[in-house]
Amino acid sequence: MSEVVVIKNGVDVVNDLINVIVSNRDYLSEIDGAIGDGDHGINMAKGFNICKTRIDGKELTLSEALAELSDSLMEGIGGSMGPLYGCIFTGWSDSIQGKTELTKEDVQAMLVNGMSELQDISPAQKGDKCLVDTLFPAVETFQQAVKDGKTFKEALNIMKDAAAKGRDSTKDLVAKIGRASRLGERSKGVLDAGATSCCLLVTQLADSLEARIK
């Protein structure tokens, strides 16, 4: 019998994601201030809070709750982060429609679909100094862990490590995409704000899923 994550109410999991962004609002803006506008945390918290007002107190599948999160970001904040995260969460939501129990293969399919939705609208590559530097290695290592027959919990933890390493890798990168790319060499030496928020989200997702493994 393979392990499954049982999600009674998807709102609880998405609320965990909302809380991790909202509680890191100032930290994310501060990181962004070094090479960006300094508004990453402000915009992200704004979009995630919009979602909170839409889902609070409801009973939704994880797919439905993620769709609400995607809509909140796409319609609520615009910019670059609205469409980027909006597409990732749409991809996650679409691949687990109707499910209340997720196998690690389901989670893998969900993560891969988020990645491909993102690639549909953004040409970003690993090494560009953006959220892709966190997301892609996280997804790829989770895939590999599932292939290697790791347990659900092990695979989630391997993904968390990869996300953190991916985030940290942006420190020494020169930005090749987005507004920071105009800085050239001057963008080196600081973390990318998008890679950092992506690490918070991937890590929180892993923790929220792990807590629900039956």
């Binding site: 506008d37 508004d39 915009n43 796409m74 319609e75 609520g76 904040i77 615009g78 910019g79 670059s80 609205g82 469409p83």
Partner: peptide, 12 residues
């Protein structure tokens, strides 16, 4: 119309 220095949404 977007936020300050930030693209409007696709919906807009």
């Amino acid at each position: 119309i977007g936020e300050i220095f930030s693209s409007p949404t696709a919906g807009a």
